[in-house]
Write a protein that binds this DNA or RNA. Sequence first.
DNA 1: CGTTAATATATGATTATACGAATATTAATA
DNA 2: TATTAATATTCGTATAATCATATATTAACG
Lengths: 116, 116
Amino acid sequence: MISPTQFFKCLSDETRLRCVTLMQKEGKLCVCELTTALDLSQPKISRHLASLRQCGLLQDSREGQWVFYQINPNMPDWTGPLLKNALQAVESTTVFKEDLQRLQKMENRPEFVGCC
Amino acid sequence: MISPTQFFKCLSDETRLRCVTLMQKEGKLCVCELTTALDLSQPKISRHLASLRQCGLLQDSREGQWVFYQINPNMPDWTGPLLKNALQAVESTTVFKEDLQRLQKMENRPEFVGCC
DNA sequence: CGTTAATATATGATTATACGAATATTAATA
DNA sequence: TATTAATATTCGTATAATCATATATTAACG
């Protein structure tokens, strides 16, 4: 189970915080969406997502060629309010607004269709 | 002004998180109280307090031979809920309960008397 | 003054993080 | 099967964080 210290370490890197915040707001996102939204290299995004998954903060689910990430719904209770407040703290920043814009402008976004 | 990333970095180290949580709960504390409560070396505590002060998270006030630290009351609004939730997340842990016990058992605790 | 208690800082070693670049893996599709 | 798109990982390196130890500073007090 993730510790408070470890939880804050997850959010202490700008790339990771932007990814988590985007997923908090938008739900499931795949690596290429995050790469586009944050305008960063694919290996960089992928490495941070892997570390967040190892901490248990994220879940991944492969959907054909895409791998979707989302906030792990089975996190301990105390993380819920913290994530909500983190989102509120971040979403008003310029950087995050730009992330969101790039994501919304992105063409050919893969859709998560689940098991149908 | 402190950024969300920087704020989380402050809380991402166990020593710092324990200090901040104790001050959140107990108000002003001096270095020797924190050293006793956390059972760690004085230079280690002092260095972490200095870094928290540099980030703006803490304020210090010298009172004779003692230096008291407290959560900076002039932090940006978005930090309030996060600090409150952090406290709630930490105070149930074994480590923090022990910190609190050592603090309460401490003899000859200096009292902050302010300007009188 | 000289001493002592409280706190801060410097130093050097160690460890951890983050990165770009290159490469590997996986799955879809021609 | 060959190729391509999406994602993951490895490697070497650079930077930052943390630590223990030693020492400096500051204030109180005899």
